[in-house]
Amino acid sequence: MAMKQSTGKRIGVTVLAWVVAFLIFFPILWTFITSFKSELDAIAMPPKFLFFNWTLENYFAVQERSNYLKFAYNSIVLSIGANVFGLLIAVPAAWSMAFAPGKRTKDLLMWMLSTKMMPAVGALVPIYLLFRDLHLLDSLFGVGVVLLLINLPLLIWMLYTYFKEIPVDILEAARMDGASLLNEILYVLTPMAVPGIASTMLLAVILSWNEAFWTLNLTTSNAAPLPAFIASYSAPEGFFWAKLSAASTLAIAPILILGWFSQKQLVRGLTFGAVK
């Protein structure tokens, strides 16, 4: 509502907006602060907001007791690995749908979208049993394949919407210049689509990083990524809030930062291009 507003009203709206944003953000801030408390300070009543002995001991403890780095490593390998391989499959598919569409391309896109809507529980039993029999339970490869498959429709869709914005003339110019299909994709399309590919990758990494159905059900320790690691803190034993907070901060910080960078693409990706 761009009607002229008095400065007073603007300040009022600003204060209100900041209060609302602060309340929404508060749980994350509170986790962050708690991660620097001793366990006693963490459960102190009344709560200690800023004046306590700030300490890094929880961060060391998290690593020492539960080997945080191993889970972080799994998260990184899974979320990046699965989606790099995903891109290798999705880029050619998106090229095909954007630049060599057939009569059924639209149906195909909608079908791919619909696979994303299969609830995971529908596949839990057979996948669990298959993985058990193939010895893929708790293996990075097994979970990675599942993450790749659940993100593949999203990758193709996002890439497709980005590729559609590239003028087909330029690809045709490459063909006239004697480029083979591989060279056309490698030297012309891909470099031009770098921003789109990067934001697609970013969103896919975020979603994989936060995926907590398959990772909880298909991993136990070896291949467990951070969501499963944090879940292990749900056992109600002793004073552990500060360590939970430290572990949580470590687990969400990287993705929070990536997420903040990718906000704009996020809307497009999450709504399959329906809202831009």
């Binding site: 003339d169 330029i170 045709e172 110019a173 004697g178 083979s180 470099p191 770098v194």
Partner: peptide
């Protein structure tokens, strides 16, 4: 024969230059 093998060159209305090069 595909366009890349016909030995012809084309100048497009939009120029179709490779923007990243």
């Amino acid at each position: 024969i595909g366009p890349s093998k016909r030995g012809l060159a084309m100048v497009f209305q939009s120029y179709a230059l490779y923007p990243h090069m």
